[in-house]
Design a protein around this nucleic acid. Structure first.
Length: 659
DNA sequence: GTTTCCTAGA
């Protein structure tokens, strides 16, 4: 029977085939090809199964299609069966299409050992099979081996790198965050005349963008004659990651003017820019655009929307988007749960997590667990912490170093340093983060000696190097315990021995350290010698020190500078106001208070949480909640003037249900 | 008639 139909879609194909009684091998292959083109992977495997049951023997056109489906569905068992079938028939042995499809299937299923064995069994690998291996290493978290494999391939005399293998190589350079290597490949690309290949240039652009070669990325983008939506999106993401949200917006509008249609990835980057800038208005506009372009319902876009609204301090809008989502994945839940905690609503995070387990049946992954442990840590709810701890063990997350560090932090925040150090001791491979968590734990509980002891153990006998965060923790532990000399010694150690560059936070702690013991002049000397101008945080710390040591003159100078820099932080106004209050300068207090009111500055809500009989009770301290209350400064004469105490002067209790 | 590649939540 002469039979030939060009199918417009797989639906037509199945209709036609449904009516036929006996199919030829060619017809089977046409059907499978058509289904695979429409990414109907389940159907591909179903029909493949049917084909085998009909005793039609798959050939070297059928096998790659079926293997591709196995890879996409991560059906390694099915894939292995096909591999067994292939092995039995010698005619497949030398077929490179079959070979590369087998490698692809193992790669997709994360089985690099099997992929490598399959590759080694090939008589004469070609460019595609070599590239599949390079790609496999790159995709499965071994970018170094990917580069190594590429090198082996380039040395084999019979294959010559093409555009696809170069794109894969550049991806590996990106994962290694190695722009120098990227630059070498870039040179090779130019010499080989590939410089007009858009995908290849895009991958180079992305490599520069992701490996801290900001200038190179921007230059390359400017030089590009042809740009597509990927080029634009990559460069927008690059600006966002380098903290230049406004530039990102600028490039985005340029892209729109240019007539390039944004896609889901573009929206992700723009929404990230809105989130980074906490720009709710821009975020809402972008949301509207996403709806107009029909991109709102894509899981990643709606997840980015949830994240954006959360970071723009609008948890209600975030939740509205979340509840409308037709499909949710773990990442969406991460955005929701971490978002609530970000907005000071950690109890909602825990509620949503339990909701997820009960109703959504989404399996948590390690990242989500880190977030949940973080939420619990905000609540300081020990009972709940112990529950999550057993959950972590039960679901096999215990070996993850991020989880280990989070548990250590969680127990210390709950005040259970014993449990924290037990967890710490049980972690087999302790990395910098894990060590730092324990040091931080001791630090926040004022156990400076233990923090120091742990720090010393880390630097002398662990083989793990402290990083900037570790130093920040140990410095602040010293500061809180008044270990001045030790703190200064550690600061020197950081700069001289470890060659780490202190940032503004390190300097703030150093200023705090000196300020606490009244070494105000030394603190000012440090500030003067810093390689950058003082941040509001540093000045705020100095102002706090001035208040403790009642140095009004210096306080006024500092405060003036501070208010120029950051006029929206109520805390500093309170500090200054308290200083005036102490000296009875009520006129100045009044003046300051009025300027606060005029600028619409609101003091943040202070909260305390305590655990009583397995329930967490929430205390919100906020005098703004009582409009008829007398002005706070009226009370100052009688009250002790600690700002902390002031913030805790009015309580409003609300109960947080334990889970 | 088939196989490998460029943007994306710690």
């Amino acid at each position: 029977m002469g039979f030939y139909v060009r199918f417009s879609s797989s639906v037509d194909a199945r209709q036609v085939f449904g009516e036929m009684t006996k199919r030829s091998l060619y017809q089977w292959n046409t059907l499978l090809k058509s289904l695979s083109r429409d990414k109907q992977w389940e159907d591909v495997l179903c029909q493949f199964g049917q084909m085998v049951r009909d005793e039609e023997k798959p050939d070297n056109f059928t096998i790659p299609v079926a293997l591709k489906a196995c890879g996409e569905l991560r059906e390694v068992k099915f894939g292995e069966m096909i591999h067994g079938f292939v092995k039995k028939d010698v005619t497949f042995g030398s077929d490179l299409y079959v070979g590369s499809s087998l490698i692809y299937m193992y790669v997709k299923c994360g089985r690099m050992a099997e992929a490598l064995r399959t590759f080694d069994e090939l008589e004469k690998p070609d460019l595609v099979t070599w590239s599949s291996m390079v790609s496999g290493f790159e995709k499965n978290g071994s970018p170094f081996q990917a580069v190594e494999f590429f090198r082996r391939m380039a040395m084999a005399s019979d294959v010559c790198p093409d555009r696809v293998s170069l794109i894969t190589l550049v991806s590996a350079c990106t994962k290694l965050s190695n722009s120098r290597l990227g630059r070498c490949v870039h040179g090779f690309v130019m010499r080989r005349g590939f410089s007009n290949d858009l995908s290849l240039v895009n991958s180079l652009l992305n490599c520069y963008a992701k490996s801290r070669a900001f200038k190179e990325a921007v230059n390359l983008f400017k030089m590009m004659v042809e740009k597509d939506v990927i080029s634009w999106s990559t460069v927008i993401a690059c600006y966002v990651q380098n903290g230049a949200a406004s530039e990102a917006f600028r490039v985005f509008s340029e892209m729109m003017d240019n007539g390039t249609e944004p896609n889901a990835a573009t929206m992700l980057s723009v929404l990230q820019a809105c989130a980074a800038a906490h720009d709710l208005e821009q975020g809402r506009k972008t949301h509207e655009l996403a709806i107009r372009k029909g991109l709102e319902t894509e899981v990643k876009v709606s997840t980015a929307l949830v994240d954006m609204y959360m970071k723009c301090f609008s948890p209600e809008e975030a939740y509205a988007v979340f509840s409308r989502m037709p499909k949710k994945d773990v990442v969406s839940w991460v955005a929701l749960i971490s978002g609530f905690t970000f907005n000071g609503m950690a109890h909602r995070s825990i509620e949503e997590f339990s909701m997820m387990l009960q109703e959504d049946k989404t399996r948590p992954d390690a990242i989500l667990m880190v977030k949940v442990l973080g939420s619990c840590s905000e609540l300081g709810f020990l009972e709940q912490a112990e529950c999550f701890h057993s959950y972590v063990i039960k679901f096999g997350f215990y070996s993850n170093p991020f989880i280990g560090a989070s548990l250590v932090e969680l127990y210390s925040r709950c005040g259970s340093l014993g449990n924290a150090s037990t967890v710490f001791n049980e972690i087999t491979s302790k990395d910098t983060v894990v060590w730092t968590s324990l040091i931080t734990g001791y630090g926040i509980h004022g156990k400076g000696t233990e923090a120091l002891e742990t720090f010393n153990r880390m630097v002398t006998s662990s083989g793990v190097k402290p990083n900037e965060v570790t130093f920040l923790s140990i410095l602040s532990a010293c500061s809180h315990t008044g270990l001045i000399h030790e703190g200064l010694r550690i600061f020197e150690l950081m700069v001289n021995d470890y060659r780490l560059v202190p940032n503004s936070e390190h300097y703030a702690v150093l200023v705090d350290l000196l300020g606490r013991v009244g070494e105000l002049d030394a603190a000012i000397e440090i500030i003067k010698r810093m390689p950058f101008s003082p941040t509001p945080q540093i000045l705020g710390t100095l102002l706090g020190a001035c208040r403790i040591h009642q140095n009004g003159e210096m306080a006024e100078t500092v405060a003036k500078k501070l208010f120029e820099l950051e006029s929206y932080h109520a805390g500093y106004y309170m500090l200054m106001s308290n200083m005036y209050g102490v000296k009875g300068e009520w006129e100045n207090v009044e003046k300051l208070r009025n300027s606060v009111k005029k600028r619409g500055i609101k003091k943040g809500v202070a909260e305390s949480l305590i655990e009583i009989r397995r329930k967490v009770h929430r205390f919100v301290a906020d005098d703004d909640l009582h409009p008829n209350k007398e002005p706070v400064y009226g009370l100052l004469k009688e009250l002790d003037l600690h700002i902390k105490d002031l913030e805790n002067s009015a309580y409003l209790e609300s109960e947080v249900d334990s889970l």
